Computed example of a mutant assay.
Amino acid sequence: MFKTKPTWEQFEDLVRRILEANNFRIQSHLPRGDSGFDFLGILGNEQWAIEVKYYRTARARPSLIESAAARVVNNGLRGGAKKGMLVISSVLPTEMRLVLEDKFSISFADRTDLRNYASVSPALAEELDSLLEADPDLVRDLSDRKEAPWNRSRSINERQAPPSDTKGTELCTRLKDTKRGKQAWSQYEELCIDVLKYLFPNDLQGWHAQKRTDDGVSRYDFVCRVRPMTEFWSFLVEHLNSRYVIFEFKNYVGKIKQGQVLTTEKYLLERGLRKVAIVLTRAGADKNAFKMMQGAMREYGKLILVVDDKSLCRMLHMKEQGEDPTDYLFELADDFLLSLPR
């Protein structure tokens, strides 16, 4: 079966070709992850540490960009690079870009810059517009971006390297150290609260814990009001008509079963604008539980997503490295809906 590359990988490859079209010699840099960066670029006699970040949301999220920039500086210094550049798919307002460049002493290139420098090749420009589904209202006037970002940068050695975010790693370690089962239920719940507030500090409001339903018997762990600031949360509000999302924490030893999904599904109310639940559980859902989730979506339009330990740690590391964890939730929802049977 033919499978296309994920969008972030397509974007990274396209950025490589745009830079090469502007006289950079580019090679992949290893190791990646915590101690690496995407590309080692050579322009003239200078080596550049270049990191590429693809975000589904077109408008820049400053906290994520600052986390990514700190890693470019730290990893660039460790890798022996003289200059650094962070390339993002979002729109970065000129005023914000100038502040960030002064703070980190690296270059920042957003989709407006990329569109400008892709113009050396009509094919590259067309590919970029198609990949990012360019909105003319979001792309700034190119006239103030004639100077290439690599001409504005100072040496990253000029300033002390800023501290990198390590909270995601710390929370993931806590998760791995938390025992499964009833005895550690309270500890797991407290951890999940810390995780959600770290991952989504500005996306959710309310944080109503342990709210009981009107009959005083059933309860769910958290209900939050959604702020549609990213593609995922906007999708919930605009397409699923869900202004609220339920989070449930299930510290089970094994996979959750059909009965647990059925209980969650009963909490979701179309007229209450509460049609989405995200279940945090240690080992995911079994086959019958997954079928129940499919039925809830197919028959009632109720979306239930299950996030296991592995996925939760991935999201924590994404946030720590300046990537948007809501993009991962979007992928989960997208894969679930694409595979939904008749």
Rank of each mutant, 00 (worst) to 15 (best):
G206D: 03
Q183D: 12
Q205S: 12
E189P: 02
Y198A: 02
V195Q: 03
L199K: 07
L191Y: 07
N202M: 01
L204F: 07
G181P: 04
Y188H: 11
A209D: 04
L199R: 11
R180S: 07
Y188I: 11
H208Y: 08
T178G: 10
W185F: 05
S186K: 15
Q187N: 14
H208N: 14
Q187E: 12
L196P: 00
Q187C: 01
E190Q: 13
G181H: 06
E189Y: 15
R180K: 15
K182M: 04
V195D: 04
D203S: 10
I193F: 15
W207H: 03
Y188W: 15
H208C: 03
K182I: 11
V195C: 04
K182V: 09
K197E: 12
V195H: 05
W185L: 09
W207I: 00
S186F: 01
C192G: 09
A209V: 08
K197R: 15
G181W: 06
G206M: 05
Q210F: 08
D194W: 01
H208F: 13
D203Y: 03
N202R: 03
L204Q: 00
L199C: 05
P201C: 10
Q187F: 02
V195S: 05
Q187S: 15
E190L: 12
E189W: 04
G181S: 14
L204I: 01
Q183N: 09
L199H: 07
A209T: 13
R180I: 04
L199N: 12
E190R: 11
V195K: 01
Q205D: 07
L191T: 05
S186E: 13
L196E: 02
D194R: 04
G206C: 03
D194G: 02
W207S: 00
A184S: 14
R180P: 00
E190A: 13
L196Q: 06
Y188Q: 07
K197S: 08
N202E: 05
F200M: 02
E189G: 06
Q187M: 12
L199Q: 05
W185N: 08
G206N: 01
D194N: 07
F200R: 01
Q183E: 12
F200Q: 06
P201S: 07
R180M: 10
G206S: 06
K179N: 10
C192V: 11
P201R: 02
T178Q: 14
Q205A: 09
Q183Y: 02
V195G: 03
D194F: 01
W207C: 00
K179Y: 09
I193P: 01
P201K: 05
P201G: 07
R180Q: 05
D194S: 12
A209F: 15
Q187R: 14
A184C: 10
G181M: 11
D203A: 09
A209S: 11
K182W: 11
F200L: 10
G181K: 11
R180L: 03
N202Y: 03
V195Y: 02
L196V: 11
L204Y: 00
Q210R: 15
C192D: 08
D203L: 10
